[in-house]
């Protein structure tokens, strides 16, 4: 009787056509939305969005129809004004939540697969390493987009619906592109960083702490170093500040952060993403070989 190897083997048949990573995305999203704590975090995000909806509604209703002096005065209150800064601020505030939610959703995504020997099972299916990484990353990007790009773009649409006209359109047509780019700058390093940490650490908790430690330590250094060397450009070593610098440019905001050209910040963000991708891919590659 012939004896065959009984361990899991990488699938060596012809890969199936289509978006194979979508299976991973669906599975991860199903798990996440089945977690109560995750839903609570999303509800927290809704609170901020609701405030912005209120702000835009009041502002637009006042600008379009009201002649009441009190309401006109309200329109001039800086906090209630709606312009590109509103959408920029929305994303900036959401970025903290994006980090928390990504940490919640992503820190166990890969290390738990390692712990439960799921990697071997995944790679014994018609699923490549790229599909696996793409599936995990896209899940986190979608979750991030759910907190940033999607609601912010909807706010722009709401603004246009409540204050219809060529002027509003002229003022806001470019904002969705900026939202998309800025959201990518917020979400991508966050998602890739958390996934890389999850791949490198064997424990979900350590993965979470490590990524937070690096980000927070990096921000602390980014705050202290410019003061110590009396050169604000050293702020670029802080990832949140670099992201902010790109955001200022994308939303045509007056520069409040360091004066260095925004391109350097974009390059820094790109390098962080590339490093995380490399760490992630090399760890998964090793696991695939081992399986």
């Amino acid at each position: 009787m012939p004896i065959y190897e009984q361990t899991y083997r990488a699938y060596d048949g012809k890969p199936l056509q289509g978006f194979r990573w979508w299976v991973m995305v669906k599975q991860e999203l199903r798990i996440l939305f089945g977690t109560r704590a995750f839903v609570y975090l999303l509800i927290v995000a809704v609170i901020h969005t609701s405030f912005r909806v209120f702000q835009i509604t009041v502002y637009d209703m006042v600008s379009v129809s009201s002649q009441t002096p009190a309401l006109m005065a309200l329109k001039n209150v800086a906090m209630m004004q709606v312009d590109e800064r509103t959408f920029f601020d929305y994303l900036r505030i959401q970025s903290s939540l994006v980090f928390i939610v990504t940490l919640f959703a992503g820190s166990g995504m890969i290390c738990n697969d390692f712990r439960d020997n799921l990697i071997e099972i995944y790679f014994s299916k018609p699923l490549t390493r790229l599909d696996y990484i793409a599936g995990k990353t896209i899940t986190l990007v979608l979750v991030g987009a759910l907190l940033t790009a999607i609601p912010d773009t909807l706010l722009v649409v709401l603004h246009n619906l409540l204050a219809p006209g060529r002027e509003t359109l002229r003022e806001t047509y470019w904002i969705p592109f900026s939202i998309l780019a800025f959201s990518a700058c917020i979400v991508l390093p966050c998602a890739l960083g958390v996934l890389a940490s999850s791949a490198l650490f064997s424990s979900e908790r350590y993965a979470g702490i490590a990524v937070f430690m690096i980000l927070f330590g990096n921000s602390a250094l980014g705050t202290a170093l410019p003061e110590l060397v009396r050169n604000p450009n050293f702020s670029i070593i802080s990832l949140p500040m670099a992201v902010n610098r790109v955001g200022e440019t994308l939303f045509a905001q007056p520069r409040k952060s360091f004066p260095l050209h925004w391109g350097w910040s974009a390059l820094f963000i790109g390098l962080v993403c590339a490093f995380c991708c490399w760490a992630l891919a090399s760890r998964i590659r090793r696991a695939e070989r081992a399986s």
Binding site: F212, M213, G217, A220
Partner: peptide, 21 residues
């Protein structure tokens, strides 16, 4: 360095890193 880095950043970070686990 003591007040901004050690006290405000490193101390809670290290406590989290070791304490939570």
């Amino acid at each position: 360095l003591m007040e901004d880095i050690y006290v405000k950043a490193l101390l809670p970070l290290l406590a989290m890193f070791f304490g939570i686990m």
